[in-house]
Amino acid sequence: MNVDGQNVVQVLLLVGSISLVPALLFCVTSFSRILIVLGFVRAGLGTQTTPPNQVLVGIALFLTLFVMGPTFDQIKDRAVEPALAGKISTAQAIDRGQEPLREFMFKQTRTSDLKLFVRLGKIDAPKTRGDIPTRVLIPAFVISELKTAFQIGFLILLPFLIIDLVVSATLMSLGMIMLPPVFISLPFKILLFVLVDGWALVTRSLVQSFG
């Protein structure tokens, strides 16, 4: 293959790798948990499209950068800077760079989920974390993140559900069956959320859940 052909292949590989960045963002960072929990908050409030999806994704992205900051710093120190300085090869940089991510994922992954994918992958029982391939760790991490996000979302929805039940029961006792309860409960839910500084509470709980 000539030089021009090699350049074309390299460009195609580069474009293809860039297209995988969003998938990596979802699968190996805290992004998915944060975005799902924020979606539960909006669903609990019942505001439908407020905040809009773009705002929720933006909040989730910057909270992800905040939570993943120490991990990204380790990747930069161990892999990126030595590779740019020519001290290590690209392959060595990839191996060093994935270690901080693996450490983060191991902390957030349940043992039961790891065992599930080890069994599904028909892999010999690993003796140490280093024996677990990344291709097994990533899906186990994703499943654990989904479970944790839904557990947090359940706790968030409970107080909003209580408000809906109280308003619905009150309207029925007054004989106002035709009036949708959401018209009455929505202002109360927003007021309660603002009074308790809900966004700060949710953000603090999310960040601390990765501790």
Rank of each mutant, 00 (worst) to 15 (best):
V37W: 00
L38T: 00
G39C: 06
F40Q: 01
A43P: 03
L45H: 04
T49M: 10
T49P: 00
T50V: 15
T50K: 04
P51F: 12
P51T: 10
P52Y: 12
N53C: 07
V55R: 01
V55H: 02
V57L: 15
G58H: 07
G58D: 02
A60P: 14
A60F: 08
A60R: 06
A60K: 07
L61Q: 08
L61F: 13
F62C: 06
F62L: 15
L63G: 04
T64M: 14
L65T: 12
F66A: 04
V67H: 02
V67A: 04
V67Q: 05
G69L: 10
T71C: 08
F72T: 10
D73E: 07
I75D: 04
K76N: 13
K76W: 05
D77R: 12
D77W: 02
R78E: 07
A79Q: 04
A79C: 10
V80K: 07
V80F: 14
E81S: 06
E81P: 01
P82G: 04
A83L: 14
L84Q: 13
L84H: 05
I88D: 05
T90N: 04
Q92P: 06
A93M: 12
I94W: 10
D95I: 10
R96E: 14
G97C: 11
Q98R: 15
E99K: 05
R102T: 07
